[in-house]
Amino acid sequence: MGVNTELSVVRGSLADVASQGGQSLAEAFVTAEAVILCDVSGSMDAHDSRGGRSRYDVACAELGALQANLPGRLAVIAFSDRPEFVPGGVPPFLSGGTDLAAALRFAKVADVPGMRFIVISDGEPDNAAEALHVAATFTSRIDTVYVGPEAFPQGREFLERLAARHGGQSVTADRAAQLATQAARLLLSA
């Protein structure tokens, strides 16, 4: 099930940057450029990533590397049955379902000019239509990173449709192992 991440704060996360600068989280968020919505539902526990590690464990490692490279620029929201803002940058494994619609509604508060959203998921939301409906209310761009199995084209296709709603891009990470690279690619793209 992965490590206990409840007390973790990774380098470059909003909490880390706020701590270093003697700021509040809200002040640190002023310079954030992207909100990452990370799927931590039960399916992310599949041990099909490098070295037999779970998608979740690899996603955490990749997210950590991404935040270290882009300090203070990323806010992380974990979601399964419920969304959870994770200022320390390490999403807890929540298990359960994949309520992407609820996560998007939660993240909508950060839909301000210039913000980017990146959904990292294996593309199996509980209610795809509702998720697309909520996504349609966003004014900012939503990109997606697919981290599911290659033999599940429906998941990838759903994320592609989600990204297409606002001209975003959808990329595939090789079972989460390339997540940081792909997410960075999305952030650097216009």
Binding site: V9, A18, S19, G22, S24, A26, A32, P87, G88, A110
Partner: peptide, 30 residues
């Protein structure tokens, strides 16, 4: 606008912290 969004997220994180006893944002200076 971003600060307001940050306030809203921080309030949500506070709720989470209360549940997990995590104080991720605390800094020595703060």
């Amino acid at each position: 606008a971003r600060y307001d969004a940050g306030l809203a997220l921080a309030a949500a994180a506070e709720d989470t912290r209360r549940r997990t006893r995590e104080f991720a944002e605390q800094s020595a200076a703060r």
